[in-house]
Design a protein around this nucleic acid. Structure first.
Lengths: 194, 194
DNA sequence: TTGACAAACAGACTACCAGTTTGTTTTTAT
DNA sequence: ATAAAAACAAACTGGTAGTCTGTTTGTCAA
């Protein structure tokens, strides 16, 4: 005798968890709903009661991973002093999290295509993007960061640079080097590399 | 009485052209091979004679669009004097081309997912990436660009920044502003904005 | 408690679609 | 001229996302 809220959370959780691992291993298109169902120990009717379609289940997985990313960033940022150090630490935490094989495939490679550009943007806007933007704003206001364009624009550009860092390094072999390059990029705005 | 090479070029051209427009309008997953076939005026047998599968046809479309991008860039770069001016002009041309609705959807949004990370990277490596890398190398060697990290790394970062510029602006409403921000970013490396 | 209602779930069924197979026509090379 | 290969035609198949109808389980007011 479980409450409805518990049943709901249980079923959704099983589906999201099974889907998460299968999407990470085989990709969205090559993961059949049937194998998700058997992995979750749930029936078709249950799944389509909780999610309108396969893509909506994928979006729920994206949401979960994004929340995990936020947690990792907040943890990395916790002990930092100064807006620039905070920004750097948070950015590196983001990169490290996104470089994980499962996360990269789902959030970086497939999400824009599966969710479509708009819903993908909305996802970003809900999580990491505002965090990065506020970090940049603060650093600019404190004078730790100099940029002649807009803070919003710089956020888009840096966000993309970090994304590329993950996307261009399929097996994370050059990650240490690229992390350094990212830090060097930040330093270009703080006037330390004339 | 057409030669085989002509027949081949004709059939492939029709398929690629039809697929290009349909993929741009409805996306890869929602475009059935059947509608491509009727659009191209070609039968199933013909298509699967020239392409191993649907994804390979998509890749052919990507190749075509990438070549068109190269042409646009080379045209924009033609009259420029100086490595930095050349770099800026080429980058803006790349952004403007990729911001086109059809190009963005195919090359920026869907290609990483449909081709898979490796083949997508290979595509980039075949076209725009080397161009950008050489532009950056030259500018760095001439002293027009300063960066304490590697040229390769800076290429990855700038390439990603430009990608994000296109991806974060679904209806290109902020494109003029973002183009300015990109130029401001370049200036950070040339020591013009302390 | 009970009874009406809604939420959660079960599983068969359908429409469609990517890729295969087998057979036919056209070009090429000897 | 003829054998081989390239190009094409179209029927067919296995599998899959989403639907439909019906059943079970929880909720809440009287």
């Amino acid at each position: 005798m479980a409450t409805n809220a518990q049943r709901r959370a249980q079923t959704r959780g099983c589906l999201i968890n099974a889907a998460r691992h299968l999407f990470a291993e085989q990709g969205y298109a090559d993961t059949s709903t049937e194998i998700i169902l058997s992995g979750a120990g749930v029936t078709r009717g249950a799944m389509y009661h909780h999610f309108r379609n396969k893509a909506e289940l994928f979006e729920a997985v994206c949401d979960l991973l994004s929340r995990e990313a936020m947690a990792a960033i907040e943890k990395a940022v916790a002990g930092q002093r100064g807006s620039l150090a905070t920004l750097k630490a948070g950015s590196l935490a983001w990169v490290d999290f996104m470089a994980r094989d499962d996360v990269r495939r789902i959030l970086v490679v497939e999400a824009p295509s599966v969710l479509g550009q708009e819903r993908w943007r909305a996802l970003d806007e809900r999580y990491s993007f505002p965090l990065l933007r506020e970090g940049i704003r603060e650093a600019m206001e404190e004078g730790a960061l100099h940029f002649s364009g807009s803070a919003e624009g710089l956020t888009v550009l840096l966000n993309g640079a970090m994304n590329a860092l993950v996307l261009n390094d399929p097996w994370a072999e050059n990650l240490p080097r690229l992390r350094q390059d990212l830090l060097a990029l930040f330093d270009c705005f703080s006037g330390e590399t004339p």
